[in-house]
Structure formats: structure tokens, C-alpha cells
Write a protein that binds this DNA or RNA. Sequence first.
DNA 1: CAAGTTATTGAAATCGATTGCAAAAAAGGA
DNA 2: TCCTTTTTTGCAATCGATTTCAATAACTTG
Lengths: 325, 325
Amino acid sequence: MITIYDIAKELKISPSTVSRTFSNPGLVSEKTRSRVLKQAEEMGYQVNLVASQLRNRTSNIIALVSLQGTWSWFTDDVANGVQDVARENGYEIVVLNANKEHQESITICEKMRFAGIIVAATELGRDTVYLNDVIPSVYVNRIIEDQYRILPDDVHGVGQGMDYLREMGHTRIGFINGPESSMHSEIRYDTFVKKMQEFQFPVKPDWIKRGDWLAETAYGRMLEILNCREYPTAMLVANDQMCMGVYRAVQERGLQIGKDISVIGYDNVDYGKWVAPALTTISFPLYEMGCQACKMLLAQIKGISHPKEVIVRGELLKRDSVMKV
Amino acid sequence: MITIYDIAKELKISPSTVSRTFSNPGLVSEKTRSRVLKQAEEMGYQVNLVASQLRNRTSNIIALVSLQGTWSWFTDDVANGVQDVARENGYEIVVLNANKEHQESITICEKMRFAGIIVAATELGRDTVYLNDVIPSVYVNRIIEDQYRILPDDVHGVGQGMDYLREMGHTRIGFINGPESSMHSEIRYDTFVKKMQEFQFPVKPDWIKRGDWLAETAYGRMLEILNCREYPTAMLVANDQMCMGVYRAVQERGLQIGKDISVIGYDNVDYGKWVAPALTTISFPLYEMGCQACKMLLAQIKGISHPKEVIVRGELLKRDSVMKV
DNA sequence: CAAGTTATTGAAATCGATTGCAAAAAAGGA
DNA sequence: TCCTTTTTTGCAATCGATTTCAATAACTTG
């Protein structure tokens, strides 16, 4: 492995000068600098950031830790947001995946003294995670007391969806929720009910089901709803993946999505555009949340004061799964 | 930031002893060890891996660099494979994303002296990337001279699909290919034609189209095919995403996928299970490729000899988009 | 109990880059 | 030319953990 000492020896100059050539070129004469650069190029020198970081006590790497058991669309979009902001500010990002047994992924970020950690969590992910305040951190989509966090505005999102259904003339609306443990489930459900009451639409318990974010379960729940003597003209579904189950159930019954039954999802997963009919959905503003998270983290790193909570709004994406009644 | 010196001073012992407590506890007496552990816990000590790595000249972090412009299913699945093997061997993985201008992502892995780099590339990603042989590396899904690599067995995959279509009685088969620049396109196309000839099925140029991996374009191409006086009973499509375009085109014409026209995709993206009818597809063995890539990298890291190329087979996943004629 | 072993500890060097300080070299001015 | 100012350089200490070597402490055992 080539070091500045190797280059220095070769050129019969001091390592200090070689170092300065890279870290503070203004302090080195034009002549020496070009000799060093040439020699370094020739020997295939790459600065050792490990040494450099030890000396400087700083890193320009931000870690994004996903609490999913596995990699997924969720982390992807957040990552894109974090990355764009990070790079604008001269930072690189690395993504780690902390599954059930892997507290390790978090700890290693701290031990590596990365510049900061952004923890991104859907609710399918692990419950808890231990930070030691060794480096700055921000949570995306999770509320932990006293910790910096970015949250989506579910109230606004569901509100948008409900307003739209009403505009389209729907009054008989069903709802498939996420699991009980979820903060989103609660908020989305509450907002759904509140809106129904506000509009003075009938809230039918038979049309309100609990799911678990997964298509398979939602498929069963939707069949139950379709077995009711009369069924709703529209379904609000707490995430897109469950909509795939709903689509299947509806189509198996010989009914048409968008015609017999309108559907609004939540999340805006990429394949929603490609199913037929294209899924109308409320976007989970992941990219924007990633951006905000990174800004929040950078503020901490630079010691600038910043509010501890930021709430980001998604928007309703009107496609083909909802039509006027 | 707490260091071993802080702990040492507090306990009035030498830093060496503190260090040994963590890195080689057998060399420290039971009594001292527990005192150190307690003190460290109390002070919130976390070893500084930067210092440790500098001294040891080793890292236990493997980097997976994606050459996609953005995060995607491709990298996800490869990452899961790499991760499982890595963790079995005491390594952690971090994922980086190299977009067009970001040679930087690769370089930073080298500068950080990570244990090794796995470069994963679909063909939507950037063309070239420069490694400096500072650390071991493996390419996934890309052929670079003299470099270690993992490739999928496209010949086997397409063969499986074609055998199945023939079994199901199809003889009139169309094909939508990927873009010209792609190694997969070439192989898949060649294999398709070879199989057609082998089976003595008619190869109709009108039924063979070039796509660009994207649904939108495939939608247009499929419409062209459907405009022919007679159209095929089955389509082999070079990736799943394009199948979504095919589905839409077919359905818009009032025809039914699986009934009027059978479709086989390639890749096994996750939503293929949830579209209606569920998509029959040939899997791109990403997870397995990730595992193999990691094994290959570990072999290099440990200095064990290993073949420079490994080819991994996918399999045909029979679902509902193909039926007997 | 003394000599020989073994278990524990500490001092000091090391990994590779950075930087304050001082020396040397170059440039400028009279 | 000689002195002052500015540029370039080199020396040596530093970041925090590890490890070799030597010293000391704690056991064994005849």
C-alpha cells in the first residue's frame, strides 16, 4: 500500500510536503506540487482516509440505517433524498440494513465515527434500536423521545384522498387499515373516520377492516367486504401493496376497479403506475423526507440550531382507479 | 469523545490494559477486566474503529456499489445475498450509489480502505468506473477484462421459458427485446431465435421488437404487434417491467392476458406476483448472485484461490400469464 | 522457602496523514 | 549588497488503538 512516505522517499522530500500537496496545495510551490502529483499518479497513491480521519476527527460519510428486515422501496427513496442533499454539501452516504438481530449495524456507524446517522423505519422493521449519542442522528418516520425526527403528514394525506372521493360523488366508502401497532394506522384510521363524520357519510363497521400492510391479507379482507349484502363504491386502503390484494379480490368477483369500485392507495410505490387500471394514491413523501432528514443532520453536524421535528406533506396522485359515481 | 486513555486515567491503569480488555480479554485479569468494563459502560465508551483500523490495517466492512442512477430492486436483492454471506463471516456491508458523476463513490471505498468492493450494475447504470486495485473487488452482472465477476445464465433462463411455451402448445411466439447496447439483450435474443429454429417454429420479424427495458416503450411495441394481421399466441419479453406495458396494450385491445395471449417475463420483480393475472417469469437470480459475489470477495480477502467467473442460474416461475393453447 | 513458571501489567513504538513551529530558501527593497 | 518580508520546506507531535518487549506480580513445586 502506497503512503505519503513512499512518495516522499522517492522524491527525497518530506512527507509533510506530500501531505500538503493534497490537503492544502496552496502551501506547496508549483514545481514541487506537480512532481508530487505525477509521482502519486504513477505509484497509484490513494490517500488513506482512515489515517486522515483519525487525525482530523471528522468524517464526510453519512450513514443511512434502514430498520427494514430487508432492503426496500422505502429506504430507496429516502436514500435518494438524503444523497442529493448530502452530495450538495460534500458528503457521501452509505446505506446499512439493520435487521432483527443487528443492532450491530447501528453500532458500527458510531464506532466508525461517521459524520452522522439517519435511521429510517417502516413499521415492518425492528422495534428498537440503541444509539449512544456518539454521533448526531435523525429518525425518519419514527418518534423517539427527545430525538430529531422527520414525519409524514398522514392527516393531510388522508384528507386529500377523502376530499377527492367526495368530489367524485362517493358516499359509501370502506377502509382497510394497517396493523394495530402502527402509528400510521391509527392516524389514517382516525382521519378517515373524522372525515366520514364531517361529510356525514355512513360509517359501516363491515366495510372497515384491519390488514397488515401485505397484499395477501388485504385480498382476504376485501373478499369479506364483497360478501356483504351491499358493498362500498370506494375503498380507501392504507397502503398500495394492500391495493394489489384488493384488485385481485375485486377482479375475481368479476367486478372492475375504477368502475364498480374505486380505490385509493397510500405510498405511491412505483408499480402503482403500471397496474391496470393505474392506481390513484397518496404519496408518502419519502424523497422529501430524506432531504429534510439530511438537512437536519447537517445542521447538527455544523452545530446550527434546528427544530427537532419536521413534518412533510405528500400529495394525491390522480390516476385511473377512481371514477365519478 | 471517550477514549481508552480516559478510562485508563480514571482507573489509574495503563491504556494498554484497557485496550486488551476489549481486543484480547484473555490477557487481562478477571478483576481488572470487570472494572474496565464497568467504567467503559459508565462513560459510554465506544471503540474508535478508525484508530483501530489504522493500526490493524484491516476493515470488516464490505462495500456494495450500485451503478444504477438510483436505488432499485436490483441492488436490493443483490444486497440481501451479499449481506447474508458477509454476516456469516463477521463482515458488515454498506451500500453506496454511484450515479453518473460519481466515480467518487467507488474511490471513497478505496480511500476508506474497506475490506473489499462489490460493484453491481444493471445496464441502465453508468458505463465505466475506475478501480485502482487498492482493495479486492468483484463485479456483479458486468464483464470487465481480468476482473472477478458473477453473471446470470441467460441462455439457460430463456431456454427454460421457451421449453415451457412449447410444452404449453405455443408455436406462434413473439419477442420484445431490451436495448441494443445490452449484453442481456443479445444473449436473450440469440437464444430465443436459436430455440425457435430448434423447434422449427416460424420466426416472424413483425413479432420481434426492440424495447428499452421500460414499460412505456413496450406498450407501444405491443400495440404494433397487435396491429399485425395475425398476432402471436405468446410473447417472451426480455424483462418484467416491459410486461406491464404489454399487459396494458393487450387489455386495451379487449384481449386477455393468459387467455388470448400468453406472456413470459424476465427478472421476477416483486409486483409480478400481484398483477392480474400473476406474471409467469424467469428469475434473475440476484440473491444468489449476491451470495456468490460475497464468497468470491471473501476468498480474495483471505487470499484463497477462486475461479474468476461464476455463472448463476435462474429458474422459471410458473404463474398465471401462460396457458395451454 | 527459593527457584522456576506463568499470569498481568506498563512503556514505547506503530499505523498514515496532518499541522504548529521553526528553519531555510526565495523574493523584494533600499 | 545586505536586510526584511514572504514562500517553501522539514521536524516532530498528534489522533486512538494495538502490540512487542520487558518488568513485575502471583503461583507452583520440589
